[in-house]
Simulated assay, not measured.
Amino acid sequence: MTRCAVFGTGSWGTAFSLVLADAGCRVTMWGRRAALVDALNATRENPDYLPGVRLPDAVTATADAAEAARDAEFTVLAVPAQTLRGNLERWAPLLADGTVLVSLMKGVELGTARRMSEVIEEVVAKEGAAAADVHRRVAVLTGPNLAREIAARQPAAAVVACADEAVARRLQTACHTPYFRPYTNTDVVGCELGGAVKNVIGLAVGIADGMGLGDNAKASLITRGLAETARLGSALGADPRTFAGLAGMGDLVATCSSPLSRNHTFGTNLGRGMTLAETIAATRQTAEGVKSCESVLDLARRHEVDMPITETVVRIVHDGKPPLVALKELMSRSAKAEGH
């Protein structure tokens, strides 16, 4: 059986472990909390994030990172984006030689404006691995993948992106099940940007929902949000076709329309008048867009890309600007041709 390590016991890491096991892999999950690891092994469920979902027998859990990493053909990273670098610096010396490093994370690192694959390459190459070799074995899995639906084995599709198409096909085989259909892509940049920026637009649409705005407003935010994503992607060399696919439009629609979306829910609470502190307190899981909106805007400014919706979200979430005031400012921007 193909051996996989999954670092992270949140909802998506747990759901993807289930997918891998259903595809015929043997999975060892790593978790930082021994009590949760013990509960996973004893009850075959994740009581904190996916209660009621039974995990296959091929999934086990450990709090020992070395045990999880041992002999893994695929090492899946499913931790909050802003914790990746620190965690991976501790794990990198433990990784199996030649393991494929799979990012499930959808964010941009604060301070460096690095995409998750770039962070992985930097950290692992510091351990002595050749940078070109690491680049060929870093993969990204993204798309409209709400964890609760996938854990219930409801049909879903995803994109597996890697610079090395053969590696992408290997990962595709490792996670292909009757309900989970992965497609391959070599556009890592576009796939990662689609996943990171959609969280920010999800916050914007959630805020609009919380304010009681109509479907016209929400459709406009989704469409213009996709335009922002594509502009940034173009500046970074992404394939524009990526944003019309699962990693772009597909993920954006799921995030902006589903009550299961953490970012949409977070934005809705802000739009209803809750403060940032109150909304954080009411949110059990990480809403990546809350921090990544700042780093996405930083990345855009470094490449001189105009992203007004992202900038508006930053002003609301981090500068404390009232949503109604921010909306008026956004709507009063000078008129432009749609292609700009």
Score class of each variant (00 low, 15 high):
Val53Thr: 08
Ala5Phe: 10
Pro308Trp: 08
Gly107Pro: 04
Asp97Gly: 06
Thr283Asn: 09
Val159Asp: 00
Ala244Asp: 12
Gly212Asn: 05
Asp97Trp: 06
Arg85Gln: 15
Leu297Glu: 14
Ala147Val: 01
Arg148Ala: 07
Thr9Pro: 00
Ile120Val: 03
Gly320Val: 01
Ala130Cys: 11
Arg54His: 13
Ala326Met: 12
Ala139Val: 10
Thr286Phe: 10
Thr275Cys: 14
Ala35Cys: 02
Val305Glu: 15
Gly250Arg: 01
Pro259Arg: 02
Ala163Arg: 01
Leu146Thr: 03
Val100Gly: 07
Pro308His: 04
Cys4Ser: 10
Ser220His: 07
Val124Phe: 13
Asp64Phe: 05
Ser295Leu: 14
Arg302Glu: 15
Arg170Gln: 03
Arg333Thr: 13
Trp91Leu: 15
Ala235Ile: 03
Ala63Asp: 08
Asn41Ile: 08
Ile309Ala: 15
Gly195Gln: 08
Arg302Thr: 14
Arg301Phe: 08
Ile150Tyr: 07
Glu127Trp: 09
Val76Phe: 12
Asp57Glu: 14
Leu55Thr: 04
Ala129Glu: 13
Leu20Pro: 13
Val160Ala: 09
Val296Ser: 14
Cys175Gln: 01
Ala161Phe: 07
Val167Glu: 04
Pro47Glu: 11
Val167Ser: 02
Ile309Ser: 15
Leu20Asn: 11
Gln172Val: 00
Ala204Lys: 05
Ala161Lys: 05
Pro259Ile: 02
Cys293Asp: 11
Ala168Gln: 02
Ala35Asn: 13
Val27Gly: 06
Val37Met: 03
Ala230Gly: 10
Gly190Tyr: 03
Asn46Phe: 02
Ala254Pro: 07
Ala63Ile: 04
Pro155Cys: 02
Glu165Asn: 03
Thr286Arg: 13
Asn199Thr: 10
Ser334Ile: 15
Ala42Arg: 14
Thr60Met: 00
Leu110Glu: 13
Gln285His: 05
Ala219Glu: 12
Arg284Asn: 14
Val160Trp: 01
Asn145Met: 04
Glu304Lys: 15
Thr265Ala: 15
Val188Glu: 03
Cys191Pro: 00
Val325Arg: 14
Arg3Gln: 12
Ala96Pro: 09
Gly98Pro: 13
Ile201Phe: 11
Arg169Asp: 11
Leu18Phe: 03
Leu221Tyr: 02
Thr75Leu: 14
Asp48Gln: 15
Gly8Val: 05
Gly233Cys: 08
Val160Met: 11
Ala157His: 07
Leu36Pro: 10
Leu95Met: 13
Arg136Ile: 08
Ala281Trp: 07
Lys198Glu: 06
Lys291His: 14
Leu260Glu: 00
Ala163Glu: 02
Asp187Lys: 04
Ile280Ser: 09
Gly206Phe: 07
Lys321Thr: 14
Asp57Ala: 10
Arg148Glu: 12
Asn199Gln: 04
Pro155Phe: 00
Glu329Ala: 15
Val108Gln: 04
Pro47His: 13
Cys175His: 03
Ala156Lys: 05
Ala58Val: 02
Ala96Gly: 13
Ala235Leu: 08
Ser292Leu: 10
Asp215Phe: 14
Gly143Trp: 00
Ala235Trp: 09
Ala254Lys: 08
Leu299Trp: 06
Glu45Gln: 15
Thr223Tyr: 09
Gly10Ser: 05
Ala168Val: 01
Glu149Val: 06
Glu338Val: 09
Met307Ser: 08
Phe243Leu: 01
Gly111Tyr: 08
Gln154Tyr: 04
